[in-house]
Design a protein around this nucleic acid. Sequence first.
DNA 1: ATATTTGCAAAGTGTTTGCACGTAA
DNA 2: TTACGTGCAAACACTTTGCAAATAT
Lengths: 143, 143
Amino acid sequence: MNEPSPQHHTLYERLRERGWRMTAQRRVVAQALAGEHVHMTADEVFRAAQADLPELSLATVYNTLNDLVAMGEVREVAYARGPTRYDPNAVTPHDHLVCVVCGEIRDISTAPGVTLDDDARQGFEVLGAEVVYRGRCPACRAA
Amino acid sequence: MNEPSPQHHTLYERLRERGWRMTAQRRVVAQALAGEHVHMTADEVFRAAQADLPELSLATVYNTLNDLVAMGEVREVAYARGPTRYDPNAVTPHDHLVCVVCGEIRDISTAPGVTLDDDARQGFEVLGAEVVYRGRCPACRAA
DNA sequence: ATATTTGCAAAGTGTTTGCACGTAA
DNA sequence: TTACGTGCAAACACTTTGCAAATAT
């Protein structure tokens, strides 16, 4: 459960390599999260995964997503109101564009040079930084 | 309701100047939000404001906070799980330090030079940017 | 064999809403 | 005077939990 996770593998493969106890439920959840710029809600993951495994329950989706977050394989993105979204691309650092109208979230490459000096840190142990750009997405600008 | 809001006034004064219909409830909510580096939950605002006006209801606190957010006088900060927090210092741009353990949020001055070129913008109309630093706060490091 | 995971349904948070009453302008 | 704000309680959306049955290793 503690081996490294090379980023060129799929989420499913990385989980297998970690020695994570694999079940049909966890497999279909991992497969539902496949893709590079995905930010699904728990319910969207549930629906997609349920297509492969009808007996899957929403509670298990939540359990699995929470485990994946705790493992660092998936990032929670909770910038907009509404349900939490899950970003499976936790390996490659990147920032987000968030639409203030519809909540749409898009990936964007990380802004360079965002670091803090000791003084600014206020005693925090900083584990990561991320830029959130808020604005209106193309669809909402048009509407 | 559309006049500018000089930042050297209190929130309450700015709301009055905007010509916002003022009630005892809105006044005590605005007063509860006074301060420079405050990030209260709706319930914390409710409790604080209720001390001044016992007949205040939580629903009114939510209504008022939502109005203040829509007006741009207060910023919603929903980075950590748990209830939404409200940042009355919407006038001065600043970033946040967020504790991944306890959810504590501290203000930090804005990182310089966080801008996007047209290409990176992906068609978004960018209204603002903010850096979120995630880590462990001093208290949680000690625990 | 056995420690873990699952599904279900119920409970838990946090937030919004509908409507009769109250009140600022 | 009247359009708007308020309190209340019920509804709502999202997430977690307890427990017996199922299952990966």
